[in-house]
Simulated scan of single mutants.
Amino acid sequence: MMQHPMPDERRPANDGPKAAVRNRAALITAAREIYAADGLDAPLSAIARRAGVGQGVLYRHFPDRAAVAAAVLEENVQQIEQAAAAQDATLASVLGVVTWHSTESAAFIGLLHADAARGRSAVRAHATALSERVERCLRGCLPEGHRLGGADDLMLAVAMVSGAVTGPTREERERRALAAWRLLGVEVGPVQPFDG
């Protein structure tokens, strides 16, 4: 027998487009957290669970694993671009944001090594384009005559530091990243996300 709702019972409101925007943001946040803990091979179901949505919602926003990773990486790169465009931007401050993303995201470290990406050419092309955007941001803040001013020196240094970013906790990864920058003789500002 079908039950009809009583007049004072109400269904939850359908937020429509607002829910879609909120769900997408929750999925990206969840993916960033899951990837930081478990790497890029973490199950998509874990991301959906962490975001508090069903897998169908995840697939409506992101058709596959690569699309989820691309959304996380795009957000990382946008923060770096915003940091570089800030009025008081310095190489040290932007490197602080880059280092924060490196300590938070295994996916971001993969991006910084885009030239080593194997497999699908579309994924490699996207990673290379994002990596080039990071390099443009850093080069735009690089003082004249800086020790990392050589053709490949800047991104090689970033890749070397990201290779040192290991450890079970974010704090340990940050400590190692800062030690690597120090060994390279490069000043790094506060290790934090850019919050505009």
Rank of each mutant, 00 (worst) to 15 (best):
Q3V: 10
H4V: 08
P5A: 13
M6L: 15
M6I: 10
P7V: 14
P7R: 15
D8M: 14
E9D: 11
R11M: 14
D15A: 10
V21E: 13
R22N: 13
N23L: 00
A25S: 12
T29H: 07
T29L: 07
T29W: 00
A30C: 03
A30K: 02
A30Y: 01
A31G: 15
A31L: 07
A36E: 12
A37Q: 15
A42M: 06
A46N: 04
I47P: 00
R49S: 15
A51I: 06
V53D: 02
G54V: 00
Q55S: 13
V57M: 12
V57Y: 02
Y59D: 00
R60V: 04
H61E: 08
F62Q: 13
P63R: 13
R65Q: 04
A66P: 00
A67T: 10
A71T: 08
V72M: 07
L73K: 11
L73T: 07
E74A: 09
V77D: 08
A83E: 04
A83G: 05
A85H: 10
Q87F: 14
D88T: 10
D88Q: 14
T90D: 08
T90S: 14
A92E: 09
V94K: 01
V94A: 03
L95R: 04
L95K: 07
V97T: 13
T99R: 06
W100C: 04
H101F: 09
T103V: 12
E104A: 12
L111Q: 01
L112R: 08
A114N: 01
D115E: 11
D115A: 15
A117P: 00
R118L: 10
G119W: 11
G119I: 12
V123T: 08
R124F: 07
R124L: 05
R124P: 02
A125W: 01
H126A: 11
A127W: 05
E132C: 01
E135C: 03
R136F: 06
R136H: 14
R139M: 01
R139S: 08
P143I: 10
E144Q: 13
G150L: 03
G150A: 09
D152F: 11
D152Y: 14
D152S: 12
D153Y: 07
L154C: 04
V158S: 02
M160N: 03
S162D: 11
G163F: 14
T166N: 09
P168Y: 01
R170C: 08
R173V: 05
R173K: 07
E174W: 05
E174C: 06
A177I: 03
L178C: 01
A179D: 11
A180T: 04
V186E: 00
P190F: 04
P190M: 04
V191P: 03
Q192R: 15
D195L: 12
